[in-house]
């Protein structure tokens, strides 16, 4: 007899069940139940934000090179479990070729963003030639805790494509997975849990956006929110509630299959530019000779 997998949540590096005890049934096209998914509550979200906040200092403080190594490790583990993801995608209604393509792209995306970890700073930072005797430079820094309401139409690719540019730059995140295609999200969490990614850097919830989006947008300890769906009412509500703490709010309603939707500008959406000034002593400069 086949052992069925229990899909739980991923919070602070652990796999708890929803504290609410609520579930929703995931059915395939034939209306057969394929899994019981956690219907995350506001409190699960709150716990996830606490875990994400706790992880910011450690993750953002890591060497950029080290973050790159970890992201590459994610690609490696993902590659090793390719078959499992393909199987889950098939279970959720994908064709074989589209399932294989989606997994392939997800792996490639990990490799792609892994490489950005120690490069985007050089591209988007600057040394600014101010007119006074000061050394002045600007560097990108992580915004902090970022919430994501991930793509509804893909199970793996949209999730991965949103998470990666966020964590490349040292942010941590809380992600609500696709409600109708949630299986890969929790399996991806298992990948993350075995990839040297510190606990709390990525937290994954399953459940209902209608129920959770206002809590995502109004949480005062969340620095940014990214919405990857097309519900205009939710977009508006999120943007409105974001104003409570001047949350950075973005809509990434993108076709993640397209190559153009992997780019460093997504990394920069959740980066802050910090500018530092320091005086330059110029004693003796008049004597400099070339």
């Amino acid at each position: 007899m086949e052992i069925l997998k229990t899909y739980k949540l991923f919070i602070g590096g652990a796999f708890p069940r929803t504290e609410s005890g609520r579930y929703y049934k995931l059915e395939n096209k034939q209306k057969q139940v394929i899994a019981n998914m956690c219907l995350s509550s506001r409190k699960d979200f709150r716990n996830a934000v606490v875990a994400a906040r706790k992880a910011v200092e450690g993750w953002s403080g890591r060497a950029a090179f080290n973050r790159g190594q970890i992201l590459y490790r994610i690609a490696e583990i993902l590659e090793g479990r390719k078959a499992q993801f393909v199987a889950e995608l098939l279970l959720q209604g994908s064709t074989k070729s589209s399932a294989e393509k989606e997994v392939r792209l997800a792996i490639d995306r990990c490799v792609y963003y892994s490489g950005w970890c120690d490069k985007y700073q050089q591209l988007f930072g600057s040394v600014n030639p101010v007119a006074t005797s000061h050394f002045n430079f600007s560097v990108p820094e992580p915004t902090g805790v970022v919430c994501v309401i991930a793509d509804e139409n893909t199970s793996l690719l949209g999730l991965v494509s949103a998470i990666l540019p966020i964590i490349v730059g040292g942010n941590t995140c809380v992600v609500l997975a696709s409600e109708s295609k949630p299986l890969c999200s929790i399996t991806f969490a298992e990948v993350l849990a075995t990839s040297d990614l510190a606990a709390g850097v990525v937290n994954i919830l399953t459940g209902n956006s209608k129920e959770l989006h206002t809590h995502f947008a109004s949480h005062m300890d969340v620095n940014a929110i990214i919405y990857c769906r097309e519900n205009a009412a939710e977009i508006k509500a999120i943007a409105e509630l974001s104003s409570m703490n001047v949350k950075r709010s973005f809509v990434w309603n993108k076709d993640w299959l397209k190559a153009e939707n992997e780019n460093p500008y997504l990394i920069m959406d959740v980066q802050e530019i910090k500018t530092t000034w320091h005086p330059i002593e110029n004693i003796g400069v008049s004597g400099a000779k070339y």
């Binding site: 600057s126 600014n128 101010v130 600007s138 500018t275 000034w277």
Partner: peptide
């Protein structure tokens, strides 16, 4: 750092 309230068009 070791200065304050400096502004410049080139400085974000």
């Amino acid at each position: 750092a070791n200065t304050y309230n400096k502004f410049d068009p080139t400085s974000p």
